[in-house]
Design a protein around this nucleic acid. Structure first.
Length: 212
DNA sequence: ACCCAGGTGGCCC
DNA sequence: GGGCCACATGGG
């Protein structure tokens, strides 16, 4: 196998099959703008947190119609937002991050759909200026909520790289480049590979977020 | 009673 | 520029 990175993808594909079945919501062929917007908010809820807990917070927001960029931006009761987000942990920072993200979108673009018309490089740079959004969250938002082909380096990816001894350097951009350099720039492939990496790490256990 | 889960910003040197 | 650290919840 000449290209190890791509070869591993083919192996995972053979082992687990179509990745969409593991993440029917996030890794869908076609997603509505509403769903993409909800996913963008969930990426913040799930930072350094189990899916289970993030999902409780997500459902709390959904049930109160606050799983919406516009609604959070216009929300006047911050303490209510805090109590809804609480199960996801970090209640002193996550609600603030949600508000900052929603303010960024509403004030600069007006809607999630408008933001998504930005090109990948610009959109990524802009996201990184928002409080609470680092490289991983930016890439997760772009890959799953804006359908941009950008590779995510998260704990699962790092564990995968470690187990396959693909690298000794664990710098974010070094690893991101390692994957992107060795793969065709294809949205379905980037989403699928990432989902399959998670499937491999979880080995079939655990269920959350309509997920694996 | 521990340990962990899809990170990030703020310190310190 | 890299290395550490607080942050908070619910489940095993």
């Amino acid at each position: 196998m000449q290209n190890i990175v791509y070869g591993l993808y083919l192996e995972l594909l053979k082992k687990y099959g179509n990745p969409v079945k593991y993440w029917p919501q996030w890794c869908a062929i076609k997603k509505s703008w509403k769903l993409k917007e909800e996913i963008s908010l969930e990426t913040i809820l799930v930072q350094r947190t189990s899916w289970r807990n993030a999902e409780i917070a997500s459902k709390n927001l959904k049930n109160t119609r606050l799983l919406s960029i516009r609604r959070i931006y216009e929300n006047k009761d911050f303490q209510r937002l805090v109590s809804l987000v609480k199960p996801a942990g970090f209640y002193n920072t996550k609600p603030k991050r949600l508000v900052e993200f929603c303010r960024f979108i509403c004030q600069n673009y007006g809607s999630w759909q408008n933001f998504c018309s930005e090109d990948l490089i610009t959109a990524r740079e802009k996201l990184l200026t928002v409080y609470g959004i680092g490289p991983e969250t930016a890439d997760t938002i772009l890959l799953y909520a804006a359908d941009e082909p950008t590779f995510i380096i998260d704990e699962y990816t790092r564990r995968f790289i470690k187990s396959k001894e693909l690298a000794k350097n664990f710098d974010y951009y070094f690893l991101k480049d390692l994957f992107e350099r060795n793969l065709p720039k294809d949205l379905g492939l980037f989403q699928g590979y990432h989902v399959l990496i998670i499937a491999e790490q979880k080995q079939g256990k655990g269920v959350s977020m309509g997920v694996i």
